[in-house]
Design a protein around this nucleic acid. Structure first.
Length: 157
DNA sequence: GCCAACGTTGGC
DNA sequence: GCCAACGTTGGC
């Protein structure tokens, strides 16, 4: 089993939006970055755990845990010119973009902010999220980092 | 709103 | 295949 972190802008799709979905599950569409796509396509497995991260908000941080709930399948929003993430170059017969379903497991008891994570840069060395200029919207998380962050959750700041 | 970082595009 | 221009991300 692998561990991941996915970013979402809460203005667009927050963890509460996920919680409100049927079965607390939704498809993770709109990924238009090859590196992120390759992670989904090649490495994500059903049951993998996922940190749900709120980006581009104040403050940014990890707000919950989800799980991968499907195998990868074509991202149909790439085929629809009315969609924000339409991509004319994605051929339905050979889809360029894919997605997986994500199911909410639980909210964290408290947000672990990006600022707090950066304060633990030594223990979290190698965590891509806290590296400079890291824009990937899907990234792997080491199990040691995953466990460490969950221990942070239990602490009071 | 600013701007650094970084991915993509397209002319050559 | 190089690389300048451009667009996007996302913290601040």
């Amino acid at each position: 089993m692998q561990y991941w972190l996915v970013k979402s802008e809460p203005d667009a799709f927050s963890i509460d939006d996920l919680a409100a979905c049927p079965n607390q599950t939704d498809h993770w569409d709109g990924i238009r970055n090859y590196q992120a796509r390759n992670f989904m396509r090649d490495d994500m497995k059903i049951g993998d755990k996922v940190f749900f991260y709120h980006s581009n908000c104040k403050p940014p941080g990890i707000v919950g845990i989800a799980r991968v709930a499907s195998k990868p399948y074509p991202d149909h929003t790439a085929f629809d010119s009315n969609e924000k993430y339409y991509d004319a170059k994605s051929d339905p017969d050979n889809p360029r973009w894919i997605m997986v379903d994500i199911q909410l497991v639980r909210h964290l008891k408290r947000m672990i902010s990006l600022e707090e994570l950066k304060q633990h840069a030594d223990a979290l060395d190698g965590l891509r999220l806290i590296q400079r200029g890291m824009r990937l919207s899907i990234m792997p998380v080491d199990k040691a980092h995953w466990d460490y962050i969950l221990r942070l959750e239990k602490r009071k700041r």
